[in-house]
């Protein structure tokens, strides 16, 4: 049988991007411990609406850990204390009765708060737009089995491609660097045979775009710890290597 929890929440409330924000304290009463963290917020919101208080806006959608919409700072940790778990998959049984929980939006200068706990993550799309694709117009591919890909290579690409684009890596980084997100997409595409022709232009372009929005990596490793999909820091090293190669190769190409 599920038990119920009574909690104190400190939630960041901010009406608009340029409005001042602050932590507001709410009591969360009778929260079933089977509910997820987001359902806990649903319950609190129902109570707020009953009392004519505007509900807390928080990011969420699929609630099964794959869409990457959700994500808040819970007690100073991106997605909360559970490893490899997105906020929507964090359940209240991981908390104790009487806990105080501080909830804050992702913070980065390039992630302006839209409202309360929701931030604008469009820079991540800009990075993909800069080269996070393989140019293969519809209908141009040969038979799928014409290109053989060793199982290990496909698995490793999949490890990187598992990124859900939630932004926890950037939020957790003390420098607000976008390395883990960018390098995961780069490794996904750069490690596959199909991705080779554009490998170096892609790397250069995505890294340059990333640096227009985000900070510099100092190799804390905080990003990988925060990642709900356990994306590895190794991809950042691969990206760094490829970037220097790209600088050299792209130059030799353009001088031909």
């Amino acid at each position: 049988m599920s038990t119920e929890l009574n909690l104190t929440l400190q939630v960041w409330r901010q009406a608009a991007p340029d409005a001042p924000g602050s932590f507001v304290t709410y009591e969360a009463k009778n929260i079933p411990d089977d509910s997820s963290f987001l359902e806990m917020l649903d319950i609190v919101n129902e109570g707020l609406i009953d009392n004519d208080v505007e509900p807390i806006e928080f990011p969420h959608d699929c609630r099964e850990g794959i869409c990457g919409t959700c994500g808040v700072m819970i007690n100073g940790r991106a997605h909360g204390q559970e490893r490899a778990t997105a906020t929507c998959q964090l359940h209240m049984r991981k908390f104790s009765d009487g806990d105080t929980i501080a909830i804050e939006p992702w913070r980065a200068a390039a992630f302006p708060v839209i409202k309360d706990l929701i931030v604008d993550r469009s820079p991540m799309d800009k990075i993909i737009q800069a080269g996070g694709y393989i140019t293969a117009p519809t209908g141009t591919g040969g038979d799928a089995n014409d290109t053989l890909i060793p199982k290990e290579v496909a698995e490793s690409a999949m490890d990187a491609a598992a990124c859900i684009g939630c932004g926890a890596c950037i939020a957790a980084c003390p420098n607000s660097a976008g390395q883990l997100f960018t390098s995961a997409k780069l490794w996904h595409l750069n490690s596959l045979p199909q991705g080779q022709p554009e490998r170096f232009t892609r790397t250069e372009s995505m890294v340059d775009t990333m640096e227009q929005f985000f900070g510099a990596c100092t190799n804390h490793g905080e990003c990988a710890e925060a990642c709900p999909k356990e994306i590895s820091l190794d991809f950042i090293a691969y990206m760094n290597g490829d970037y220097i190669k790209a600088k050299i190769k792209n130059r030799s190409r353009s001088s031909q």
């Binding site: 932590f23 980065a108 900070g215």
Partner: peptide
């Protein structure tokens, strides 16, 4: 990095 970071309030 300092320009890119926005400090957490908590």
């Amino acid at each position: 990095s300092l320009a890119s970071d926005f400090k957490y309030q908590g």
